[in-house]
């Protein structure tokens, strides 16, 4: 059964990110970084998440701007290492990673495609709590915190399966 997924309007920051990528002088680097996924959610790239904010050519290499999701998210270091590895493999000589805290990352920066990918992967996207297995909205919270800081744990009252919900932040 397919759930009805409400497609949110594109957040202004997301639109700005899409424009930055479109107008960027280093399209090949953006493309290369599409291979870098969230280590905990391997169906979403850092670009899909909105964690990858910008790529700039610098004098001797490339500067990559990342926005951390949760301040204590242990996946950030893995993401940074993966970005570095990917760019070095693409022939970049030097990679500088900048962390941008402001504006703070929000789940609003994920676009509709990313939300659908989350749902298909079995994680309820941030918009509404909706069972990714059967599409029911009848669910009870089991724990405000799930397997990672960004998720809460629910149980579907229709199909009785547990599922993770990507918390709106």
């Amino acid at each position: 059964m397919n759930a009805i997924v409400t497609l949110p309007l594109v957040h202004a920051e997301r639109a700005a990110l899409v424009r930055r990528r479109r107008d960027s002088a280093c399209a090949e680097l953006w493309n290369a970084l599409d291979a870098v996924k969230d280590p905990e959610i391997p169906v979403l790239s850092l670009y899909d998440l909105g964690v990858l904010r910008d790529i700039r050519r610098a004098a001797d290499g490339v500067t990559v701007v990342l926005s951390p999701t949760y301040s204590g998210c242990p996946a950030m270091e893995t993401m940074e290492a993966d970005v570095r590895r990917q760019l070095l493999a693409a022939g970049v000589r030097q990679v500088v990673i900048e962390r941008a805290l402001s504006p703070p990352w929000t789940t609003d920066w994920m676009d509709a495609r990313a939300r659908l990918a989350l749902k298909d992967y079995g994680i309820a996207p941030p918009d509404t709590v909706c069972c990714p297995q059967c599409g029911s909205h009848d669910a009870s919270v089991v724990s405000d915190f799930g397997s990672t800081a960004c998720k809460a744990l629910y149980r579907c009252n229709a199909c009785l399966e547990p599922f993770d919900h990507f918390k709106p932040l």
């Binding site: 951390p68 949760y70 301040s71 204590g72 998210c73 242990p74 805290l101 089991v142 724990s143 405000d144 915190f145 799930g146 397997s147 990672t148 800081a149 744990l153």
Partner: peptide
Amino acid sequence: LEEDLALANVALDYLGRARM
């Protein structure tokens, strides 16, 4: 178990804040 996860996750937010 749920509270164990919750407390650890909240703790992580604080450690992240301390690092910043």
